[in-house]
Simulated assay, not measured.
Amino acid sequence: MEFNFLPIFTFLSLTLVTGHAAVSPEAYWNMVLQNTPMPRTVKNLLPSEGNVVAGQGRDYPVRPPFDLCYDISFTNGYEPPVHYGSTFFLEEDFKQGTKRKLDLSTMTQTNGVTFLPRQVAQMIPFSSNKFLEILNRFLIKPNSVEAEIIKETIKRCERSSFQGEQKYCATSLESMIDFCTSMFGKNIQALSTELEKLQEYRISGFKKIGRGGPDDPAVCHMQNYPYAVFYCHNIRSTETYMLSLEGTDGTKAKGAVVCHKNTSAWNPKHLAFQILKVKPGTVPICHALSQDSIVWLPN
């Protein structure tokens, strides 16, 4: 399955010729976030020199629903889909020093798509009202699987925020930076899970990041789309940890983890409760973030 990038590639070429003085996504990061190291996830999504659409001609990945499916199930009656890219566990599992195993053999990767420069992304429609125009731009048939993927991504971005959530769909790195700095300022951290290979890992250590409370993180989840689009949202009563991981072959890695402290409003059918055999509102529930998610929080 492939997305045809020829129309957008031609469009981008013309745009970049006329707008050659525009700041690149990487340059914008370095200008705004001078003291924030760029996580590997972001580096992997930067357009390569001379090619603003890396991934051109590659198969477009059909991925299972992402980590957000665990965070939007705050409304009773919502039954989350099964997701294969996150691992649920209890906060006490790593705080008590247990050598808990995490099966990270299916953690999602970026699969070759890249960020578009903001001035280009802003010229491409991203709206249900412009759905057919979007399909035409990518030469996608209306009844295809690719069309359904695009429709669902846009629909997810257009849904209303639930109580206690700030949300935003970033169609460029620059707009993601602006959203997160509007909440936390420029003295900010950006973290992601970084695995050398996909395998089973043991938790060998942990470190809490931030102070919790007013420092609830914003998490940006990469979407299924022809170029890099991230669903970013901030949820109250959430804490962030970085785990030190050791693979079965001795490989070292690190995992970004968020722990939801208050699950009292979650759907009782939530997959986490089924896996962990606990009830809503009883204990904090944690889950590892996939490699293509980014956690933002103030220093």
Score class of each variant (00 low, 15 high):
Leu45Gly: 00
Pro64Thr: 15
Leu191Arg: 02
Val32Phe: 01
Lys207Arg: 15
Lys207Asn: 14
Ser73Ala: 13
Met1Ala: 13
Gly50Val: 08
Thr108Cys: 04
Cys259Asp: 02
Glu246Arg: 09
Lys130Cys: 03
Ser182Phe: 04
Pro226Ser: 04
Phe66Val: 10
Glu91Lys: 14
Ser204Asn: 07
Glu2Cys: 10
Thr153Val: 05
Phe74Trp: 08
Asn4Glu: 10
Lys130Arg: 14
Ile177Val: 15
Ala288Lys: 04
Ile294Lys: 02
Glu146Leu: 15
Tyr78Arg: 07
Ala170Leu: 06
Arg40Leu: 14
Arg159Gln: 15
Gly210Glu: 00
Lys254Gly: 03
Leu276His: 03
Thr106Ser: 12
Phe11Gly: 00
Pro268Leu: 05
Tyr225Asp: 00
Ala253Phe: 04
Tyr84Ala: 11
Thr282Gly: 05
Tyr231Pro: 02
Tyr28Val: 09
Ala265Asp: 12
Phe131Ala: 01
Ile188Tyr: 05
Asp178His: 07
Gly210Tyr: 01
Thr98Asp: 11
Glu165Arg: 06
Glu91Pro: 02
Ser175Ala: 06
Val120Cys: 01
Leu139Asn: 15
Ser128Val: 00
Tyr227Trp: 13
Leu198Ile: 08
Ser244Lys: 12
Tyr84Asp: 14
Ile177Glu: 04
Glu165Gly: 01
Cys169Val: 09
Ser204Asp: 12
Glu165Ala: 09
Gly57Phe: 08
Gln189Arg: 15
Thr10Leu: 13
Ser160Trp: 12
Cys69Arg: 08
Glu146Thr: 05
Met38Gly: 01
Leu116Trp: 02
Phe3Tyr: 15
Arg58Thr: 14
Asn76Ser: 11
Gly205Glu: 07
Val23Glu: 13
Asp215Phe: 11
Leu132His: 15
His233Ala: 04
Pro80Asn: 11
Phe184Arg: 00
Gln274Pro: 03
Ser161Ala: 15
Pro125Asp: 05
Val113Ile: 15
Leu16Gln: 14
Met242Cys: 06
Trp266Val: 00
Asp249Gln: 11
Ser264Thr: 13
Arg40Gln: 14
Trp266Cys: 01
Ala22Glu: 11
Val113Trp: 03
